[in-house]
Design a protein around this nucleic acid. Structure first.
Lengths: 117, 117
DNA sequence: TATGTGTAACACTTCATTTAGTACACCTAA
DNA sequence: TTAGGTGTACTAAATGAAGTGTTACACATA
């Protein structure tokens, strides 16, 4: 379910952070569902528990999950639109950078059509 | 002409790099025009000459400028389309990340329309 | 009680970035 | 020829982010 890329320039904790959001947006993780424990996930991914904890803490800070001491971490009241808004705000940064560089909105929109995942 | 943000998470040398491309795309820097010298630009921006040099070296490595030892650095054969392609490839990364997170192309295109620079 | 949970703290390493300083070879104009 | 400007190269150091290793604590539950 989780998979991370140690070679990526993106920090591991950020990859975990985004992965959780992705799973929520896709409906794979649903409201009140328990996430893998910090220790389990860190073992599964072969990374340090602190790194997973950092991702979970960021997620909780943004009300995407809630953590109960001694119980575990769970998906908060699912608000798909809020999730999407979250991702779109990051996308905004990219848009602005491209526009800043002198490209037009039309050029960007056309580019999206051409992208294959 | 140049302006950088020391608070930005983006490395300074990368900001300089992008700024040059932006100026070329916008037609402010034209073919064979001389760029500010490493030492001058570093003074103007209050940063280390090595940082500017790093940006220029990256630009030369990508054939965007050419440097003549003892003379200076100049804009290479201007190919605006190549410049744009360069920026668009970076944009691709953002698109893929957003799609990966579960958003649709339509949602992204609509977002572009709403962005104000 | 034993085990699993999140959380916190600390020291340490690693790495990219940036700075500081020096030096060299080259070009050009006075 | 010379002085000053140019890119380039190199070493050393400081800084901060990221990640690791480890230990410890409080809480919940079977």
């Amino acid at each position: 379910m989780f998979n991370i890329n140690l070679q990526s320039r993106m920090p591991i904790y950020e990859q975990v952070y985004k992965k959780v959001i992705e799973l929520i947006i896709k409906g794979i993780l649903v409201e009140n569902e328990q996430l893998p424990s910090v220790r389990n996930l860190s073992k599964e991914l072969n990374i340090n528990p602190n790194t997973v904890a950092k991702a979970y803490q960021e997620l909780e800070r943004n009300k995407i999950i809630y953590s109960l001491s001694g119980r575990g971490s769970f998906v908060a009241k699912t608000n798909r639109n809020q999730m999407k808004e979250h991702i779109l705000e990051e996308f905004d940064v990219c848009i602005k950078e491209a526009l800043q560089s002198g490209l037009t909105k039309e050029e960007l929109k056309n580019r999206i059509d051409g992208v294959k995942l």
